[in-house]
Nucleic acid binder design. Structure first.
Length: 584
RNA sequence: GCCCCGGUAGCUCAGUUGGAUAGAGCAGCUGCCUUCUAAGCAGCGGGUCGGGGGUUCGAUUCCUCCCCGGGGCGCCA
């Protein structure tokens, strides 16, 4: 179980620092305050918090850590009334027990702050950009894109919660070869539909080593060798056929194939994003950067700094000057830029537009290019260290114990749309954000389709939230009012499981800020599961502790707990972009 | 060959700047219960944290060398 601090920890931390300072001064050491850890104890026998300060400074003071721990305790004793007991343990830990009443105050805080509980202002409204998905409109969004959508959107939500001014941005390369191949693919299918071209054989498509046929049965094969094979290409061709008949055969208006494909596929992508609950603030693209001269400008400036040179008719970026393993081509001998140059210009524009830092979210397949973009952009004046990368590994899909292979260019991928139809957006988002980005993610379709709330973690969390409303409905039937911040008296919450829940609730703000600062949204999913894992059994085991009972004061306290759990679960689900239902 | 990311329970994975006896879910096993909405609740078993070496009071965590899996090493994006 992951553990985080809370308001009580911060207070204790201050007191430990005072005690540590006193111990240092007593030993004639006026040096710097060392880094030490004060953590929620992992085991109940170790109290509420454990501190390693004595061990950290043992060498510096040349004293046994347990002795130092005793000195710390002597200084701590009269400092903090909430401390109930202090103990030296193990190699020199100081374990701290707080009175149960210390945990009661958190509920009032949660209820007062409501949707703001967990938020902070540490971002100081600084403008930050999160760029993600950025898939070229060559086909529907697939599993990997889906993970990136959820990662990027959840990170954006986290950054917003800790006070950054977040812009979600989608950038795509519509100027390059990929889009030409897309247009050519559509045209080929169009000609095939008219009987003017032959589709390549199945074996030619699937086997990269087989010879590519020039013609079949007297008809030319025009489909590109690296063309897009999905069925949507044929749909696009059929649409053009319906609209224009054979009027596009002569080649005079070939750009219509590419333009139509880009427009229609992008429409589909935006619909999918909408279904995912992901809304971009800005869409930007490569051709705009060409049209307003930003790409030429970037190249000219790199040239001024002697960071480019000519070789073999191409223009190269001197990446080796920045300790990178090789130089890279910016402009091909054909005169066309590679994707790298627009990317560099684009990153420079991000900062010119006023962002103080940017987060790029990318799949493992083009991790390699990132250092080049970063170094070049920094050379062009972007602030060092403010271009950040969140890299994520691939997604596999497991169904019935078998992994379904994902192949990009062939039509054997699973789309986000298909998965959304099967499991719904809430489950999809929960599963996609469950793992650290750097870990491969195995999407367990059987578990995702499981509707039993106990088994499916997404439903387990949602049901925990719905239960808080169920209890409120029941209370209202019985004429019992929910407490508010003024009428709440939490002092009767004394059961160990109640204190556990209060502790978990108090950890929420630190968990949020950590997840935001480290760009690790998976902590949200774990936290949600853990809080629900405390709450569901508590509610279920009503034989030991009814929430709605005869004792009005106790009922008031427990209903306060209901509210606290509801608010924190709702806030967690909101950060995850998942609905918090009142009934299920 | 080189670079990046992983390797933790049968499976999928957490483990916060190095901390005490390494955790969760699912699967398995055993009891109990019949609910403030749904078969639940409690407990049990299960590990050389890929392997060797190093750093230190202490290493799953840091360094190094191997092994395995994935990705990348284009004038493709």
């Amino acid at each position: 179980m992951e553990r985080w601090g809370g308001a009580l920890k911060e207070q204790l931390q201050g007191n430990f620092e005072l005690a540590l300072r006193a111990v240092l001064e007593a030993a004639g050491d006026g040096g710097e305050m060392p880094e030490f850890a004060l953590e929620p104890a992992r085991q109940a026998e170790h109290g509420d918090f454990a501190c390693n300060a004595a061990m950290v400074i043992a060498k510096r003071l040349r004293k046994p850590p347990r002795e130092i721990a005793n000195d710390l305790i002597a200084h701590l004793k009269n400092q903090d009334a909430t401390i109930q007991r202090l103990e030296v343990a193990g190699p020199g830990f100081v374990n701290v027990w707080l009175g149960k009443e210390s945990w009661h105050g958190i509920l009032r805080q949660v209820i007062e702050q409501g949707v703001r509980y967990g938020c902070s202002e540490s971002g100081q409204q600084r403008p930050i950009q999160v760029e993600f998905v950025s898939a070229n409109p060559t086909g529907p969004l697939t599993l990997g894109h889906g993970r990136q959508c959820v990662l990027g959107d959840t990170i954006s939500r986290l950054l917003g919660a800790v006070g950054y001014e977040v812009t979600r941005e989608y950038y795509f390369n519509n100027g390059g070869r990929q889009m030409r191949v897309l247009g050519d693919s559509v045209k080929a299918r169009y000609l095939e539909a008219l009987g003017l071209a032959a589709p390549p054989s199945e074996s030619a498509l699937t086997d990269p080593d087989s010879p590519w046929p020039e013609s079949i049965d007297g008809l030319p094969v025009v489909f590109p060798r690296d063309g897009y094979q999905g069925g949507y290409i044929e749909d696009l061709a059929r649409g053009l056929l319906d609209e224009h008949g054979d009027g596009l055969v002569d080649g005079a208006r070939d750009e219509i194939f590419k333009e139509t494909a880009e427009r229609e596929i992008f429409r589909e992508i935006r619909a999918t994003l909408n279904d995912l609950g992901v809304h971009f603030d800005v869409y930007s693209n490569e051709t705009d950067l060409y049209e307003n001269g930003k790409i030429e400008e970037a190249l000219a400036d790199l040239r001024k700094m002697d960071l480019v040179y000519e070789k073999d008719g191409a223009v190269w970026f001197r990446a080796t000057r920045f300790q990178l393993d090789r130089d890279r081509v910016l402009v091909k001998s054909s005169g066309d830029p590679t994707y790298l140059l627009p990317d560099i210009a684009y990153h420079r524009e991000k900062f010119r537009r006023g962002f103080e830092s940017v987060v790029d979210i990318q799949g493992a397949d083009h991790i390699e290019q990132f250092p080049f973009v970063k170094k070049a952009a920094e050379a062009l004046g972007c602030p060092e260290g403010q271009i950040e990368l969140v890299m994520h590994q691939f997604v596999t899909l497991t169904q019935g114990g078998d992994q379904v292979k994902q192949s990009t260019r062939r039509a054997t991928y699973v789309t986000v749309d298909e998965l959304l139809r099967e499991v719904g957006v809430d489950v999809f988002r929960f599963f996609m954000v469950q793992r650290r980005a750097e870990s491969q993610l195995d999407f367990d379709l059987d578990l995702a389709k499981e509707t039993d709330w106990k088994k499916n973690p997404a439903y387990y969390v949602q049901y925990a939230h719905a239960r808080t409303h169920g209890i409120e409905r029941k209370a209202r039937e019985q004429g019992v009012e929910m407490p508010d911040a003024n009428t709440l008296d939490a002092s009767q919450l004394t059961l160990p499981e109640e204190i556990e829940i209060l502790k978990k609730i108090s950890e929420f703000p630190e968990m949020v800020s950590q997840a935001a600062e480290t760009r690790e949204p998976h902590h949200l999913a774990y936290y949600a599961r853990e809080l629900a894992g405390l709450w569901n059994p508590y509610v279920q085991d009503g034989s030991r502790h009814r929430i709605l009972g005869d004792d009005a004061t106790l009922t008031n306290a427990r209903l306060g707990l209901v509210l606290g759990v509801r608010i924190v679960l709702a806030n967690t689900l909101s950060l995850l972009g998942i609905t918090a239902p009142e009934t299920m």
